[in-house]
Structures are given as C-alpha cells and as structure tokens.
Design a protein around this nucleic acid. Sequence first.
RNA 1: GGUCCAGUGGUGGAACUGGUAUACACGCAGCACUUAAAAUGCUGUGCCGAAAGGUAUGUGGGUUCGAUUCCCACCUGGACCACCA
Length: 917
Amino acid sequence: MYNHQEIEKKWQKIWTESGLYRTGEDPKKPKYYILDMFPYPSGAGLHVGHPKGYIATDILARRRLMQGYNVLHPMGWDAFGLPAENYALKNKVHPREATKKNVATFKRQVNMLGLSYDWEREINTTDPEYYKWTQWIFLKMWEQGLAYESHEPINWCPSCKTGLANEDLENGKCERCGSEVEQKPLRQWVLKITKYADRLLDDLEKLDGWEESIKEMQRNWIGRSEGAEIDFKIQASGEDKTENKAEERSEKKNKATEKPEIVKSKDKIIKVFTTRVDTIFGCTYVVLAPENNLVAALKPAIKNWPAVEKYIETAKNKTDLQRTDLNKEKTGVILEGVKAVNPFNNEAVDVFIADYVLNSYGTGAVMAVPAHDERDFEFARKYGLEIKAVVIPDRPEFSQWIFKKSQDSGVRLEMNKKLAEKGGHPDNPEEEKFWQNKIDIEEKEEWENIADNKTCWIKDGFLRDSKEFTGLTSSTARQQMTAWLEKNKCGAKKINYKLKDWVFSRQRYWGEPIPLIHCEQCGVVAVPEKDLPVRLPEVKSYEPTGTGESPLAAITDWVNTACPKCGGPAKRETNTMPQWGGSCWYYLRYIDPRNDQALVDKKKEKYWSPVDFYVGGAEHATRHLIYARFWHKFLYDIGAVSHEEPFTKLKHVGLIMGEDSRKMSKRWGNVINPDDMVEQFGADALRLYEMFMGPFDQATAWNTKGLIGARKFLEKVIGLAEALSEPDGVLATQKSAPAEEAAPEDASTKEKIKPELRKLEALLHKTIKKVSADIESFALNTAVSALMILANEMAEYRNKAGNLPIGAAKFGLFLQILSPFAPHLAEELWEKIGNKESIFKSVWPEYDSELIKDEIVNLVVQVNGKLRATLEVAADISEADALAAGRGNDNVKKWLEGKEIIKTIFVPGKLLNIVVK
RNA sequence: GGUCCAGUGGUGGAACUGGUAUACACGCAGCACUUAAAAUGCUGUGCCGAAAGGUAUGUGGGUUCGAUUCCCACCUGGACCACCA
C-alpha cells in the first residue's frame, strides 16, 4: 500500500511553489502551445469524463517540457451564457457569485489531478478586462460591415426567452433546455459569417492536422452547393394594378436578400434555385414556400385565396419539428389563376405552395421535377400531377443498381447455395449467364417503371426530350444549360450555402453587452475604444423579460447615455452577445493575458501562434470551431494575428460513458465523481486508468474495477523501486551516486541472470521508443500497456532473483517515461532513488538503437500458410539456413512428407512459408 | 434518407507497411498463504477435442503463398447532418 494522498499533496505543493508550471519564455527554445477547450464552470462540478482530455494534454505537455520546449498550457473559464445564468436563476444567486463559486470547484478538481496549468495565465470571459476585447473585435466587425441589424424571424426559445442561432438547435429544439423553438421576428445583430463561407471551406484542405471526420462535419455544415437560379415568368390572370403590386413586392424581396437584378425590371418572375438544371425539361410545376413574399404579392391574382390563406396559417402554426418530420405526408395548395413559364420551352406550369419547400434556403422557390426528385415525386403522386422522365440512366450505374436490388431480395444467396450443391464455382460461366439474364430482364422492367412514372431516378444519366440538349450527359448539360440561361438573361450560375449568418443577439442579462449606441440624430454609433469595456451593470433583477427585449432595457440609468458623436440623447444597445462570443478568441488571450493596450501583443502572438495541439469534444465541430475559425480569419484580415488558421492540430476526445453504457448524467444516476475516485485510488491511478480505457477518441464505458488494475500497477512499481539493487536495496541505503550495474553475486546465479538482464534492458529501451511514439500519436492506451509490460517483466525478474539489479539510473529511465502519466508517484520515486531535481526538469530519454536490436528472434515456419513451428534463430539468418532449420523441425517434417515444395517465401527475421503440393 | 466511423474472447481492448490473431487490463477458475475472510502471490483461461489436430476477427464472395488488415456486396451498431431542391 502507498499513501497516495500524502504523496500527491506534497508534490502538488512543491510544483506550484517552485513555479514548475510557469510558461517558459526562453527565446532560444522552440515553443509548443497545447490547448484544452476551456469549460463552462457549471454548478454540478466535474464528472470523471471531463478531465479525460485534460489528462491527455497534460501528458503531452509534460513530455514537451522534458524535451526542452517552452510550453504554453493554460486553462480558463467560459463563464458567460445561458447555462450559467439559468443555474444562477434557479439557485437564486447572482450569476457573478455562482460563477465564482463554480470556478473555485472546477479549479480545485483540476488541481487535484495534478494537471500542469499555468494559472498565472488564467482567463475568464466574464472579466471586464477580458470582454473589453471581445467587444473590441465586435466593433471592428461592425466597422467593416460584418455585423448588421436585421428584423428577420429567428429561432426563439420560449423557455430561455431568447433568440438563438441555428447552431444552438438540436433537432429543432433548444440545445440548452430542450424546448421546441418558435420562429419570431425580432430586431437582432447578425454576423456575416457567410462572407467567409468559401474560405472556411477551402482552407479545411490545408488543415492536415485535423481529423477527417471533423472536417467533414464542417463541410456538411457549410453545405456549399453549386447550381443555377432560373427565372420563371409569372402569367397571372389579374389586372394590371395587381400585377404592379406583385412586382413591387417581389423586387423588395430581391433587394432585401441583395441579389443582383439580372432581369428586366418590368418582368414578373419566380426565381428558383436548383442544382439540377439538366432536368428542367421534366419540370411540370413550381412550388413556393408558404412564407415566400411572392405569395402575398400575388393575392389579387389567386382565385382560391381563402384555401391558400388557410394553408399558410396552418404552416405557420406548425413547429419546426412538425414541419421537418420526414414521415409526414407532403401537403400543398395550388395557386389557381397563376402560372409560371419555363424559359427553356415556354411551357406554362402550375404553381403551388407547400411546406416541404423551405423559405430560408435558396430563393424559397423550386422547380418541381417529379421524375428525378423524390420529394417532388411524392408530391406529384399524391396530387396526380404530371411526371415526365427526361434523364435516362446510363448503363453501368443502372446495372449496379439492379444488381443490388437482386441481392436485397436474397436471390444471390439462393443461387450460391444451388451452385455449392452442384460443386459449382463463383466464376462459373453458368452463373454469369444467369446474372446477365437477370440483369437484362430486371433492367428492362425497371426502365419501364421509370418510363411509366412508377419510380423516380435521381442520379445523373443521359438527357432525352430536352431539345438541343438531348443526348448530353447530366454534367455537360448542366454546364451548357447554365450558359444558355446567362446568354438569354433568364438565370445564372449560383452557389448556395446551408450556413446562415450568425444571429449574434441574446435577450438575456449574462453576456457581453454589445458596445453600440442608438442616437436619435446619428443612428447607430460605436462606443469609442477608450470607453471600452461597456460593463454589465450590477443589478438585483436580471430575469429575462420574454418580450424580445433584454432585461438590460429596464435599467434606465444604464441605457440612457450621450451620443459619442453629437453629444445628444442616446440609448445603449441592450442585447448581449451569445455564449460563443468569448470563446472565439480566448486562445489568443492566453498568450498575453494582462495586456490592456491590445488583445494580444504582436510579437508574442507571432512567437506562440498558432495553437499546436487542440483537444476537445466533437460536439464543438460545427459551433465553436467554425465560429473561432471565422473570427480568426477576420482578425488575420485586419492584421491582428499572423496566421490564417488558429489550430494546427485537432484531436477530439471520446466520451466516458456510465457503467451502464449510457451518457453520464444525473438523470440516469450513473455519474462517477472524480473526487471519490481520487480519494480512494489516487490521482495517478485515475489518470492512468482513463488513458488505458481505450483509444482516446472513442467512447468507452466506465468500470471502477479497471481503476483497481491501474492502482495495482502503481503499487507494483513501488515494489520494484524497493527491490532495486542488493542486498539491501537503493531505497534503504539512499546511495548518493546511482548504482550502474549489478552487484557481485556468486558465479552460478550471475551466469544464469546475465542474458535475462540484457533482455530486460533491451525491453526498457523498446519501451522508451514505444511510449515516446505513442504519446506523439495519442495512442495513450497502448503506451500505458507498454509500461505495464515492462513492469511485469521487471517484477518477474525480481521474483526469480530476489532483487532487481538494474541500477537506479536505468530504473530512472522507466520513471521518466512513466512520469507524464503518473507524475506524483514518478516524482516521489525519482527523489527516493537519489535525484535532487524534479523529474520534469530532467531530459526525456532517448532509446539506444543498438540495444533494441534483437540478436535472437522467433522465426515463424508455415507450411501452406499455416503455422507449424516457431524456431529460435539468429536475427540475420539467411533464407537457405532458415529453410534448412525449418526442414529439420520434426513437426514441419511431418507436414512436408511426401509433398513437393513449390516455393518458399521468406521474410527476414520473421517468417518462412513453405508452399507444397 | 445522406455522410463519416466502427464490428475481434465473458468485458474494455491490442495487432507496425498484408506475415505467430486475442498483447495489456478486468472478470472467472484452481492453488499457495490464513482458524477464516480480505489482501497478496502463482497457474490457467477464444471455441471443439483426451490428444494429435481442427476451427475462429459481423455475413457472403474476391485478390494473395499468406487477409482482422486490401477490394466488392450485405447485415448490425454509433456519431453528425437531415424535405438544403
């Protein structure tokens, strides 16, 4: 047994007092910036899952320190935002007080684990000295026109009483509280992230250090799609007056979305967006989103207005969740008296409104091609609309599709069974013929289905019935048809994004005030830089109002102010920033946390940027990580930072699940508290176990029994240290100079032990190599396993010999590679074996490449690929010698008997495969 | 539905570039120590078989002297997105 509590406390105190964790600034050394995603200090404190990432970064940070880097490894608190405020409201304390208390808990828990953070660089997003610069960045964006005021309907959470960005939703529900989100028109500030969409997308290619999965998520989120906008002229049955009105409104809409007007202004059009111009000759109707402004504008021309109005009303009352439910049947209403003209063939088609078309994407209008789009197909079938196939599948792809369908039906399995019975072979010509026939028949049937409009074909193919474009492939047709549109001025190439501009206002108290002033004379005016930060007023009541106004609006002596421009009466902006604001740039502030002249000193920024290694949860892939990249690129554009991307390498941490394999949560009662684990088993055991559980980025279920294994390993290490040297052990004698070699023994034992000792030393160096490489690749589970193997080998030796005569210096190498994982115990034993300075001031060991070369290896001998013998041979044995040795083996002989050797395959030092007939 | 990732003992998982499948740990069983238990140590532990041997990495097929690894199809699970035209 060892007293982990005593040891861990002792070293945590010494490390803090000696300034071990302080960031090195020696300009001669290379830098390494290793960052964790900083946490929200919630009221619940940490559970064992939270520190998994922190432990891993700590391991890398400690290794880098020992490798002689200046290491920047900071920690801070993302304390603004809804969770903190909701917690404060519930517990009836001021958010500032709640935050303070929660930070203290988090900090105590983090320190308890022996994490090597430089607390002198601690930051807190709610600190006015910090959010001064968050506000400063916002103002710079506003100056550049990247922050704009909008009144569009946005996501509104009725329970949190605030507007939300798209990124704050989960399946149409508020990510925080789970309430269904409503659409509410609201005055708000919006950041024009879409202006950066292409760069955010394109620069992903340069991020080699990022996991592909996270990059893919970002690509999907940005959702770039190339297509065309096409103008369908409206043929309305109404009078001139009404048509003018429609025109007016539609122009207004175009203006609002800032689309360049490419059509003659007299024309009345429906603009649709599509990625499949090639299917346009199959367009049999056009669909508008119910909210599309055009619908109201066309009212006078619509003959069945009551029905249309009723449908719009129903759609409005549906929640997002109901509307996007894929299982629901498609619904819609025709606009009687309105037709739209397809510019390619001048055919006038019906116009519908249907809520399967989203107003927020593209133009809020689509051309419907039921033969080649599943949604249109479904709608057309329901309402009995015309389906016109104009793209013919090309053969190879089509055949594959048919083939897949036949397999689905189990036909292939049956066929295989039949063939097996007959002793048939997979490449049997009979079978091939069978499949060819089958494909031919089914292809014919399926094509008939498409032609008969019984099924729809959504892939590319060849065009038919498409005038001069007939016969082209889909992709060529798209190019030529887009060019045709541009030439005839009735459409253009267009790129759309799923990414929306970032709704940046929250109608809540606990956030950074937006540093703008509304002046009656001058309009919106920026708070001058010298007046930053705009401090959050200290108030007793900060409950959200629910009216769409921020609670700040009620604090009149804070709201009323003088205009910085004209000095006249003015009011402060009362919206606050969302939680993600402060976290968009915090990694820059750690570099220079107390600077009151700039958000970061340029020289320091140049030295430390970018972050070399960033670790955090995958749930941030499409929020924080996109926002932060956006802000960083902006800061790069205004010359505030020196690199275009903030994070060179990114690794996501896999969740630790509860013992029941569910997410750890109060709800399931499966939360494991790290305080209890550390008290019972020690921080070192907890660290080791969390790294050992499985691959770092994989979710794994917690098992407290596994922690016992880690603890046992540490106790074994102590036992080894105590058995060092003989007869009385280094620990007992505290020799001043570490012993180098084995003490003399009687000749017979010595002879017996010598080669084993050499093997042990080779293993030590192999372990140094493996642990070093594993830390680099973040294969921390196998690094721990390698350390265990070495300890087991040393223990076995000790058990046989009664002691461990490898000397304190060599044992010290083991302690060094163990130290990032179990820093307290490694440091303690390092001291015990006679070292005066901290193990973390020592130099990370290099393995001896001579020592790890095996002289004797196990050579695998196979006959026809099956293992028949393993031979102990010299590592550099030749093929001929190996073959001779193999043939000499009794078991191998047995398998070669009466057989003819066709060939042999020899992998030097590893394997000999004898192929016989 | 789309995209990505994964599927190996009773459990978590290992296997470098195609070369001894199941390292390491948990669990379990037996033994030692003990009056006893706990703790500790030792031994065993994929499956079938007394053994020789056979067989096994979700399923079916392919490439190869040799496949957990590469290719094709399918099944299952997870993550993210989801009526994005």
